[in-house]
Design a protein around this nucleic acid. Structure first.
Lengths: 218, 218
DNA sequence: GGCAAATGTGAGGAATACTCATATTGATGC
DNA sequence: GCATCAATATGAGTATTCCTCACATTTGCC
């Protein structure tokens, strides 16, 4: 599952991020070399401290050549992100192919999520790109802390409404609901208001059902 | 609900981000002035294009003074973020105070989310801080597009497993589930693996319940 | 009024993404 | 083999922007 940069996959589709699509053999190899170097640097120290000069040096090419293929630093990161997305799409397609019933779906979904989490844990580059990005680490801590505080408030109300429920599960659900609240707001902003409202309604349904004292799903 | 910078609230708690807590009256006012200027600039053009020199100029103070109160650019943004968090915590506390039953909870929760979304729409500064941040806009587009693609795959499987279900709602739920997948991964990375695994289990329960053909919640 | 501490100032240092004029390399025709 | 032109490579230099620091000014206090 780990991305293999030594054997460049034939991907002429993500050239949208590039300045000039390389036609000669050597330059195609160089693009792969750049991406491999960037991957390594991101894995070691994170994308925000990765320097373009380091990418060039580690690749054994000049800065000028680097900018011949990628218009800016973000383009390198985007290209990596798109490759990871392509991989995960394949996993999902395969995982859901044979689903016929809800029981199938549940098994398949659970396995997919576990696999995905495994990849997340194992691949520092995905972790960095999707979670660290450029965003200030301290700011993410603040967001998490706010979600925790809000989750405590929600758990308190939930305990009153559902006296018999398993408290650990209530707490985990409450944290998710509060954390996802920020997430769905971001999503709604990205999609625009019309779709955003529908998504927020779906979020509310989802949150409410997660509270309901349904029997556990394995 | 909009933040009021003309009447500085007595907040000596968020001084953690500051370099030197201002003791004199004038300097307290200056801190509020800086935050108000930053707010305005972020609302107009976004935090990533906000320049420290602009903040200083708009505040009518020198750059040196700016750095007397805030150790760096991120500290200004963090201070604003913390103030918004304090406000939302108050809303949640008030909103959930009288909850006794699940019906209460549902009403209160729904109202809270609607209110929060309203704030998000109305306040460009919150929008920017929580959604744009420094992160590359194109990268967020890529994430959204990936979630959409994955949601299509999931919806296809869901339609097979639940032939009679309302397709619009299935689609909205599927998009949320897929988008939240990235979110919960980020969350799990932040919390560490022990808590992360519990959260991922909670996420799976939540996702699965959202598929189940339960009656709609109003 | 005088003194010490707090606060204010802005030219300049430092870091780093990115450019561009020039040099090198590869392909193609003869 | 050689000429020629386009594609590719180079890295010193530019531009931008965050942030510092040595010195000036103001404030509170006796």
């Amino acid at each position: 599952m780990a991305l293999d940069h030594t054997a460049p996959p034939p991907t002429p589709e993500d050239e949208g991020a590039m300045r000039k699509s390389p036609t000669q053999k050597r330059s195609r190899e160089r693009v792969e070399l750049i991406l491999a170097s960037a991957s390594r640097l991101i894995a070691e120290r994170g994308s925000d401290t990765m320097r373009m000069s380091e990418v060039a040096e580690l690749s054994g090419i000049s800065i000028g050549s680097l900018y011949q293929y990628f218009p800016d630093k973000a383009a390198i990161i985007r290209t990596l992100a798109e490759r990871y997305n392509a991989i995960s799409r394949t996993c999902i397609t395969d995982g859901l192919a044979d689903v016929r019933t809800m029981a199938d779906l549940q098994r398949a979904f659970s396995a997919l999520i576990d696999e995905y989490y495994g990849i997340f844990l194992a691949e520092p580059v995905i972790r960095d790109i999707w979670s660290a990005m450029q965003a200030d680490k301290a700011l993410r801590e603040i967001e998490l802390e706010a979600s925790r505080q809000n989750a405590i408030l929600l758990t308190t109300a939930l305990k009153r409404a559902l006296p018999g429920e398993n408290v650990d599960k209530l707490q985990a659900s409450a944290l998710l609901v509060m954390y996802f609240c920020e997430c769905v707001m971001r999503l709604a902003i990205s999609t625009g208001e019309t779709e955003g409202r529908a998504l927020i309604e779906a979020y509310k349904r989802m949150a409410y059902r997660s509270f309901a004292d349904a029997p556990d799903t394995p």
